[in-house]
Write a protein that binds this DNA or RNA. Structure first.
Length: 714
DNA sequence: CATCAATCACCGTAG
DNA sequence: GTGATTGATG
């Protein structure tokens, strides 16, 4: 026991050993947050204050949940599976599987990922004859999810205008469609679990009396529904509420876009009458210069609970900053620098390259690949989201739940078996009249299309027969052959990688069976939806880590490259116009900077390919928020002169040189009112000539009449 | 009904 | 630049 509490600083110790009552721990980046959480659980159990079964710990990412389980297993001679530890989605899934009937779901309900959900909405929009120009499926998807995250069913959404009334109607139809097919989307997992507990009193009382200790990681990222779910489970307002131990950092709140509400921290403090607020401000991760930069950046935010990180570590190295002419040059430089680090003995896995948007990874991957440096990309297109994997999973889903129309449509004619759009349309029509799923409607269909469809149904039924008593990997193996997927990809010219991914699916299943509590098909399918990113084909290898800043939260590395620090990208142009958008972008940079232990590189590119076009931008305002003394410029001048600003190797799109009275595209210019900007494009000629300039920041993009604008080369 | 080429829209972050 | 969608052709 004493060893358990050794080496904790006074604040950490106080947090770990708080009496069982509501507590809020404001834990700065690198302050030992995970350690406090896990030690708290170990302490509660080893002092006999809590049983394993009375613990519920919830996190946001699978990575964090796994980490917590692993650390607990190292601290306690127990099986951490006795506790409920997982993500919000994972725990809600567990709850719904255990009580599917009470929740109004089939036992084998399937989970729709983002792409499945969008496909389902598109299908619905088509079936309802809705104008998809006026009601774009993506927008509808966002509308539905936002309402679910706010805890609102279609009937509860207030619609003030015709547009929204229609969207509510589609939302209601979507709910009906999902219910009929026995599928739930991500947001539905949470909402359904919430409704299950709130409507079913015996069940609620059971879980409320079981979970006496509820620990929440990354509390700042909870959305409204998740907070309400926690309140319900903790018996908030009742005679004997559970002890909620919430750990969070308002400065690291970066998920407002999906409904996260930092206000939950204040609400929690007030509503639960929290007596103990503990601040963890000593940072054990980063050198002083890195921490100073992070503190300086975040100090520009106005809405903060207030916190200042400090460290006993020395200042360390300066922050290195590199400005490249193009995104390709930027990537090349990052790779060269990485090579040098590895040559000097750095482990590849201790080096991370971070970026704002996943699209940036391609250039980096290309450079790394051609240099032969092993790398691993997190996020982006994930293993379980690959086309061939989704096809295989769709067959499996049909085995588990034939009413899953999304799965049905995905593979009914893949590999092709003569079932075209006409047949599908006819089938969908009768499915509507019978009010049944596509699969169930097939026997009712007469004529020629009916025959080929019946063959497909027969195929699935045969698969079900043949795999009835087989272990999961063999089920999948059989399905891959019987479906014709293997044959199809063997014939495809570039199908080799797809084939090996399908084999990888087999080993993923074998792994799953070995580790899971419920190693059945339904469990595996849920795993595939919920942990789409966890399984990577080249996991385990010592590789350079590539990921978005969001994905990097909670992780740390010796060396961090933060790339693409340009106005429009970081801060992202869409965020600037959003309320509080800029502050969230700043927190994003704060998160990125605080990932680094020893060395931090910042980089930007003056021009970048985006949407197949070259874009010119200015350096991010956030760079200017770092005290100049902490930065070491690796490029000659703070701003390169106009001449050298040009792309030395112009790409096609910009090669047509235009005469703009001495100015050129890509050049940095100064305007008396708008300040510095980059010439992006031009049109017209003579006195009509207009040029487009990206001033970044407040002014943004502007079209100016060349003959009137008082521009000087900067 | 399948295949291929041409055209179009899209990339902001995620479980 | 990529992946989805549409249109012409066999």
């Amino acid at each position: 026991m004493s060893a358990l509490l050794d080496n904790l600083n006074p604040e950490q110790l106080a947090a770990v050993t708080l009496p069982p009552q509501p507590a809020l721990i404001l834990a700065g980046a690198g302050s030992g947050k995970t350690r406090v959480l896990t030690t708290r659980i170990a302490w509660l159990i080893s002092t006999g204050q809590a049983s394993q079964a009375s613990i519920l710990a919830v996190t946001f990412t699978n990575k964090a949940a796994k980490e917590m389980s692993a650390r607990l297993a190292a601290m306690l001679p127990i099986n951490p599976r006795g506790m409920w530890i997982g993500t919000f989605h994972g725990l809600c899934n567990r709850l719904l599987r255990a009580h599917s009937r009470d929740a109004g779901l089939p036992e084998t309900f399937q989970i729709l990922d983002t792409a499945d959900q969008l496909a389902a909405i598109k299908r619905l929009v088509k079936a309802l004859n809705v104008d998809d120009e006026k009601y774009p499926p993506r927008e509808l998807q966002h509308f539905i999810n936002a309402n679910k995250e706010a805890g609102l069913r279609a009937a509860e959404v207030e619609a003030w205008d015709e547009w929204t009334r229609k969207r509510v109607e589609i939302y209601a139809e979507y709910e009906r469609q999902c219910q009929k097919e026995g599928v739930v989307d991500f947001a539905e997992l949470l909402l359904r679990a919430f409704e299950l507990l709130s409507r079913n009193e015996p069940l609620r009382l059971h879980y409320q009396s079981r979970f006496r200790h509820i620990l929440v990681d990354e509390f700042q990222d909870t959305n409204h529904l998740q907070y309400e779910w926690l309140k319900l489970l903790a018996a908030y307002g009742g005679a004997a509420p559970a002890a909620v131990f919430a750990v969070g950092d308002d400065d690291q709140s970066i998920y407002a876009f999906r409904g996260a509400d930092v206000g939950n921290m204040r609400d929690f403090e007030r509503q639960f009458a929290v007596k103990s607020v503990i601040r963890l401000e000593q940072n054990y991760r980063s050198h002083g210069n890195i921490l100073d930069a992070a503190n300086a950046i975040i100090a520009n935010n106005s809405k903060r609970l207030g916190k200042n990180l400090w460290t006993e570590a020395g200042a360390g190295e300066p922050i290195r900053l590199f400005e490249a002419p193009t995104d390709i040059d930027e990537a090349r430089w990052i790779v060269e620098e990485t090579q040098a680090l590895i040559r000097d003995g750095a482990a590849r896995s201790d080096i991370a390259v971070l970026y704002r948007s996943n699209a940036q990874s391609r250039v980096l991957e290309h450079q790394l690949f051609s240099t032969g440096i092993p790398y691993r990309v997190y996020g982006g297109l994930r293993f379980f989201e690959r086309q061939e994997i989704k096809h295989a999973l769709a067959y499996l889903r049909l085995l588990a739940n034939p009413d899953d129309d999304t799965a049905f449509l995905r593979v009914v004619n893949f590999p092709t078996r003569g079932i075209g759009a006409r047949s599908i349309e006819a089938l969908a029509d009768s499915a509507r009249t019978y009010n049944a799923s596509l699969y169930a409607t097939v026997p009712h269909l007469a004529g020629r299309p009916g025959a080929s469809l019946a063959l497909f149904v027969r195929l699935i039924e045969d698969m079900r027969q043949a795999t009835r008593d087989l272990p999961l990997p063999e089920v999948i193996d059989h399905v891959l052959d019987a479906s014709g997927l293997r044959t199809h990809y063997r014939a495809e010219r570039e199908g080799e990688e797809r084939l090996s991914n399908l084999d990888e699916l087999l080993s993923a299943a074998a792994n799953f069976v070995a580790e899971a509590e419920e190693p059945g098909l339904a469990g595996f399918l849920a795993h595939a939806s919920l942990e789409a990113g966890e399984h990577q084909a080249d996991a385990g290898q010592d590789a350079v880590q590539l990921m978005s800043i969001h994905a990097a939260k909670g992780l740390e590395f010796d060396v961090v490259f933060l790339s693409g620090l340009e106005e429009g990208l970081c801060p992202h142009e869409n965020a600037i116009s959003e309320p509080d958008g800029l502050e969230e972008e700043r927190r994003l940079i704060y998160v990125a900077v605080t990932r680094a232990r020893k060395r931090l590189y910042l980089s930007l590119a003056q021009s970048r390919m985006l949407h197949g076009q070259t874009r010119y931008s200015m350096k991010s305002r956030f760079i200017d928020e770092i005290p100049a003394g902490l930065i070491k410029w690796l490029t000659p001048a703070a701003r390169p002169a106009a001449e050298r600003y040009f792309d030395p190797a112009p790409r096609k799109a910009q090669s047509q040189a235009k005469d703009l009275g001495g100015l050129r595209i890509g050049q940095l210019v100064s305007h008396p009112k708008f300040g510095q900007g980059v010439i992006v494009s031009a049109e017209g000629a003579g006195s009509d000539a207009r040029i487009q300039i990206n001033f970044g920041g407040v002014h943004g993009m502007k079209w100016l009449v060349l003959s009137l604008a008082k521009l000087t080369p900067a």
